[in-house]
């Protein structure tokens, strides 16, 4: 994947991340994780290094746009994003063809929420009650991970059909 294409995809991730932040949710910290579609696509087409770059760019630029750079939300997003991306990259490599992006995305959504909660509980609130949110966040990761994974898999298939080189 060329640097230009990678940069375009990172920019796309920032756009999705920002638009997604405008969708009203019952809790301000709740997200569908649609920007993760880009991370998954890059992961499948270009590997973990590129996917990690997209995630970090998305979180840094996305927080900058939202005016939350270096705030608590930024570090939560960074922890969740990197944990999820590294985890998904390793799982994708280990599982090979055994898992589609759906399974990879599900695991990533879980890791994302668990890492965020760990940072929230250990660094920010230091309140044991936070960890009672874990089952809630785990439950929320199931539908969102499923939807983003399915969409990413469809996108990757379409790109391959259109002649995108897989490791170029």
């Amino acid at each position: 994947m060329s640097e230009t294409r990678l940069a375009s995809l990172a920019a796309l991730a920032v756009v999705i991340h920002t638009l997604e932040g405008m969708i009203p949710m019952p809790f301000p910290w709740m997200r569908l994780g649609l920007a993760n579609i880009v991370t998954l696509v890059v992961l499948a087409l270009s590997g973990l290094g590129s996917a990690l770059m997209v995630t970090v760019v998305r979180v840094v630029v996305g927080s900058l746009i939202a005016g939350q750079l270096l705030g608590p939300g930024f570090f939560l997003a960074l922890a969740g994003g990197t944990a999820a991306t590294v985890g998904m990259g390793l799982l994708h490599r280990v599982a090979g063809g055994g898992l589609s992006l759906v399974g990879v995305s599900l695991a990533g959504a879980f890791l994302h929420n668990a890492a965020q909660l760990a940072v929230a509980g250990l660094v920010y609130t230091r309140h044991a009650g936070v960890f009672y949110l874990l089952p809630v966040l785990m439950g929320l990761a199931l539908p969102t991970g499923l939807v983003t994974g399915w969409l990413a898999e469809r996108v990757v298939r379409r790109m391959k059909d259109d002649g995108e080189s897989v490791n170029g």
């Binding site: 055994g98 898992l99 759906v102 695991a107 879980f110 439950g139 199931l142 499923l146 994974g149």
Partner: peptide, 27 residues
């Protein structure tokens, strides 16, 4: 043929669902 979901995906889903249920029960 648009078969997206693999057996592995289903296994991952079931494992995570079980982990969630265990978490809810524990909490």
């Amino acid at each position: 043929p648009d078969r997206v979901v693999t057996t592995g995906d289903i296994i991952v889903f079931v494992l995570l669902l079980a982990a969630t249920a265990a978490g809810v029960a524990f909490a």
